[in-house]
């Protein structure tokens, strides 16, 4: 199974294909559309990621040594971004998720591209995922 690092490399390659940000956004939107929606009953306020402009729900559960993530968002770009993170982190060892370095966000250019409030939202998602991972690894 691909490691966190390998999964990031795949994403970077995918995005290298696009020169224009409109096309990159289109790809993010498509990833958002393909992410399985959370069932309505799971979209409760306890799962909301604090610090996002739009509503982002993040659900995590332990799977042996690994951690499984599910997420949803009311805005599709936010959903696409969380889908990328799930792509990298889902079903990976909790320990590695907690310690992971997410260099791909810089390589894709997403970190620099987002407005400060949106970048904060992205950081909040990552923090929340790592927080779950840390809890499960402990």
């Amino acid at each position: 199974m691909a490691t966190i690092k390998e999964r990031q490399e795949v994403l970077v390659e995918e995005f290298e294909f696009f020169d224009e940000w409109m096309d990159k956004y289109n790809h993010i939107i498509e990833m958002g559309k393909s992410l399985d929606a959370l069932p309505e009953e799971k979209k409760n306020d306890d799962l909301l990621v604090q610090g996002c402009q739009s509503k982002v729900w993040l659900h995590a559960e332990k799977n042996g040594e690994n951690v499984r993530f599910q997420a949803d968002a009311d805005a599709i770009i936010a959903k696409g971004i969380v889908a990328m993170l799930i792509d990298v982190f889902d079903n990976q060892p909790a320990k590695e998720v907690a310690a992971a370095d997410l260099g791909f966000l810089e390589e894709i250019g997403l970190k620099d591209h987002l407005s400060p409030t949106r970048a904060n939202g992205l950081m909040s998602m990552i923090k929340q995922m790592k927080f779950y991972a840390l809890a499960f690894a402990g």
Binding site: W21, Y25, S54, D74, A75, I77, A78
Partner: peptide, 13 residues
């Protein structure tokens, strides 16, 4: 559509 998504894509244009 969500207003935030519209805002981002309008800004891109």
């Amino acid at each position: 559509t969500h207003p935030y998504d519209l805002g981002v894509l309008l800004d891109q244009q």
